[in-house]
Design a binder for these strands. Structure first.
Lengths: 326, 326
DNA sequence: TCATTATGTGTAACCGGTACCACATAATAC
DNA sequence: GTATTATGTGGTACCGGTTACACATAATGA
């Protein structure tokens, strides 16, 4: 690899001049520009970002910390972030934390001492010290970390409320809420939204807590369906809804005739199921782009006025509900 | 951030000694070790990887170039790679190429001048010059790039053959093959496997090419199901199989009673569908770990004996086939 | 006892850029 | 005609590590 001094020598100028050329700083004659450009071309010279970083102290890596990229919510988020990162000259480093503090801390420290300019983080860990004490910018996505850390997410409470309203409007009288884990912020918000919709309506309701995981959800749903005459399910993730559909199928319960189901997330899965799933869709791509933009602004020292962004969710009515209203 | 000279000063030794301590190189007295460790502790010193990289010329970034992380095959691959990368002290940089040469080249060049130590690449692009001329190691996954580039993938031909044999053994007489795009290597291998199984068996067959995409697959399947008395479908991806299931459902064709379906990939989706999908599962995690190990060996200058690895696929029999044999 | 080797540490150059400063010349101002 | 400013370039220290080399002392061998 050619260095800046190789270029300088070939062009018959000093390294300083080449550096100025590369960064469009200070005065450079047209002659010098021409001869430097030629030398760069000829040597196929590319500046070493690492040498540059050493004294500018600036890098273009963004660490993306997610629980597990295999969970279908995150690839889409990653994709969105990567798209804006690319546009602004950043690249993203993928970190799977499995929700474990040790892994989060590991990535935070190694990447910081390596090269990271900032982080985008999705975590449910209560202890946020290792985030608040960081000296590079962070943006939290999906789950709030600490009031001092900027945050982007769906308006989950309102989203859930809309989904449950739809179930109500479609005639459900006996609703099961398959709520997510209590320690996950958005799961709680969705549960609150469920309560908002259901309260004072005089309908019967059941609540079961289950992880965003297929088998466990199927089991929980089957159990509830056997115990109660349920005619509507609000699942707080599409995966749980898929589990519920499977449970209904194996119990011979017809969807949507005997049982209506609303999922949450709006992942690919929801449209690929048979019958296709009515769901409350999050605009994950938008969340990702907004978070990335915000982080890059922070990195580049620009003003960030809105430090908390809530994106509305959208109800997508498909085949697991009857929407009697229509 | 404290520097090595800060540590040296606090410990009353030279920077060289601290460096030796950090790298376990050369002689260091126990006294020195103690006093340096204390100074590091006190200053919360972390060596700057970027300064280190500048003269060792070694980095610990692995570029992962995939068409689109949103395609469910890739998160699992990424996860596997990331797991071994973590174990060996590497971090992975996520690059979505959308199969576009420009984007691939962009990432290749920027990351190379930035920091990458090697690449793991999934691409179907014919033109491989920008890969073969690279001066850092690469490993190709899923799709072969060039004979000179190490390669890890499922034995797709054999996998497909097994899947189709199962359809045959389950009594299918009129089979539709939903093959993948002609320009994608693995899709061709799977088609060859289909032919291997079907040839000379005297059964009726139909072939339709469709992308690994839900809507298009549903349309193609519906079209074929309306034209021919098909009783078995071999889809070369789970997504296509899901499309076929939807088509069958909307045409009132019962699965598996009237129509049996075998998918390919073994993604989450296959188990979450109702009925759950019989599929030929790839061991994506294994592919990822093997590829990552191989790349790291190449980066670290170790011998790599096997430069082409084929992993067997496994048939997972679920509810979309009847397996009469049993 | 003297030569040789093992042990331990510091000095300084270097990796490949950036940026401050000095300096030279041309253009403009007074 | 001299002072001032704009334009253009080079020298060199520095970012924060690593490492070759020199040097000093202790331990071992003959």
């Amino acid at each position: 690899m050619a260095t800046i001094r190789d270029v300088a020598q070939k062009a018959g100028v000093s390294a300083a001049t080449v550096s100025r050329y590369l960064n469009n700083k200070g005065y450079i004659s047209e002659d010098a520009k021409r001869v430097i450009a030629a030398a760069i071309e000829e040597l196929d010279y590319r500046p070493s970002m690492i040498a540059r970083s050493l004294n500018t102290k600036q890098t273009t890596f963004i660490g993306l910390i997610v629980p597990d990229i295999v969970n279908p919510f995150f690839p889409e988020l990653a994709r969105a972030i990567e798209d804006v990162a690319l546009a602004y000259g950043y690249t993203i480093v993928l970190c799977n934390s499995d929700e474990k503090i040790e892994k989060e801390v590991h990535y935070l420290t190694t990447l910081q001492q390596k090269y990271a300019a900032g982080f985008i983080v999705v975590t449910s860990n209560e202890e946020a010290d290792h985030y608040t004490t960081l000296d590079i910018p962070i943006v939290a996505v999906d789950r709030r970390i600490h009031t001092s850390i900027p945050f982007v997410a769906t308006d989950n409470r309102e989203g859930a409320r809309i989904g449950v309203e739809h179930l109500l409007a479609s005639g459900c009288q006996n609703i099961l809420c398959m709520r997510g884990p209590a320690k996950v912020g958005p799961a709680n918000d969705r549960f609150l939204g469920f309560m908002d919709a259901v309260e004072g309506k005089g309908i019967e309701m059941h609540v079961v807590e289950c992880p965003f995981q297929f088998e466990a959800s199927e089991l929980a749903a089957r159990d509830q369906l056997q115990q109660h005459p349920i005619d509507g399910i609000f699942a707080s993730s599409d995966v749980s809804a898929a589990g519920a559909m499977k449970a209904a199928y194996s119990l011979g319960i017809k969807v949507p005739d005997q049982l209506q189901i609303v999922g949450y997330d709006g992942t690919m899965l929801s449209s690929q199921l048979t019958p296709s799933l009515t769901t409350v869709a999050q605009d994950v791509y938008k969340i990702g782009t907004l978070a990335a933009r915000m982080l890059i602004k922070l990195i580049e020292g620009q003003d960030v006025t809105e430090r908390e962004i809530q994106i509305p969710a959208e109800l997508i009515i498909r085949e697991t509900t009857r929407s009697e209203a229509q």
